[in-house]
């Protein structure tokens, strides 16, 4: 305890993680606040600390046959301005925190913080993103959906680092991001919604709906998505209310300082109803 290590390379970082029990600091926007102390005093870290922002080899965004890779030290604003970034992620990032914070905050930071209100996690699970977790033992891949297990609970071993996030290739006609917050900037979501679909003539070829801030973690219902897939738009039009109610049971919102359980439930159902109604009419 008491070690503070500045890693300049990935191998330095994972060697430090193998040796010490570390808090990992990327941009610092969340953890520096959580460990905040009186002005002038050092932040209160209870563990060793590993700083990874200086790892240049993780500062990249690129596409290969696997999909889009975003390295752990890319800042949110760099991702927002990058030509390879999917629009649905850009729409999410535009409304996340403020431009000042986006200049140093990172995507793995938002995921590893594992807040139920982590906006980017909603987009990650919508796009079936997976995380590349690296340690001196090797590399392991885990889906963003499985990585976040609950409030502040993540599937990350003590010696592992999120090296990058991988968004597999996808094929949708439309992707949607929608956030309800108290103000335009720096607003932590009351609820967040992301969706994607592809039509095959008058039928739903594929569909995904993801929700944030209305459950202990960002959530999708693969069962309901399966029920909807293959359905004709005409049939969907007659079953909007049924699916709105079903989605209302998927989520389990709570009262907190930002909103109430009943507001979140009603507004989520309104958004689902509106989305499905529009889709039943052919989308857009």
């Amino acid at each position: 305890m008491g070690q503070k290590i500045i890693a300049r390379t990935l191998s330095e970082a994972i060697e430090a993680l193998a040796k010490y029990d570390c808090n990992i600091v990327a941009g610092g926007s969340d953890i520096m606040l959580q460990k905040r102390n009186t002005a002038g005093e050092l932040p209160r870290f209870e563990k060793d600390v590993l700083f990874i922002a200086n790892i240049e080899e993780l500062h990249k965004e690129y596409v290969d046959e696997e999909g889009l890779h975003i390295g752990a030290t890319m800042t949110l604003e760099e991702i927002l301005r990058h030509e390879l970034t999917p629009n649905v992620l850009k729409d999410c990032l535009k409304e996340l925190a403020s431009v000042n914070i986006r200049h140093f905050a990172t995507l793995p930071g938002n995921i590893a913080n594992a807040s139920p209100a982590g906006d980017t996690i909603v987009v990650d699970i919508l796009l079936d993103a997976k995380l590349k977790l690296t340690s001196i033992r090797g590399v392991r891949y885990v889906s963003a959906e499985d990585f976040v297990q609950g409030v502040r609970k993540i599937d990350l071993a003590k010696d592992e680092l999120i090296e990058e996030i991988i968004f597999p290739k996808y094929d949708f006609d439309k992707l949607i991001w929608f956030k309800v917050g108290s103000r335009k900037a720096e607003s932590i979501s009351k609820l967040a919604f992301a969706a994607a679909y592809k039509l095959d003539g008058e039928k739903i070829a594929s569909i995904r709906l993801a929700f944030g801030s209305v459950f202990m973690k960002a959530i999708r219902s693969h069962e309901l998505e399966k029920e909807l897939e293959g359905m004709s738009l005409k049939e969907l039009g007659s079953r909007v209310e049924e699916f709105t109610e079903k989605y209302g049971k998927v989520i389990s919102p709570i009262d907190d300082q930002r909103s109430t359980k009943s507001y979140r439930l009603e507004v989520t159902k309104n958004i689902v109803r509106d989305f499905l109604t529009t889709l039943a009419k052919g989308g857009n």
Partner: peptide
């Protein structure tokens, strides 16, 4: 680029 210096550890200005 504008950044919040209250949240930036000295390690990250290297």
């Amino acid at each position: 680029y504008s950044v919040n210096s209250c949240l930036i550890p000295m390690a990250n200005v290297e």
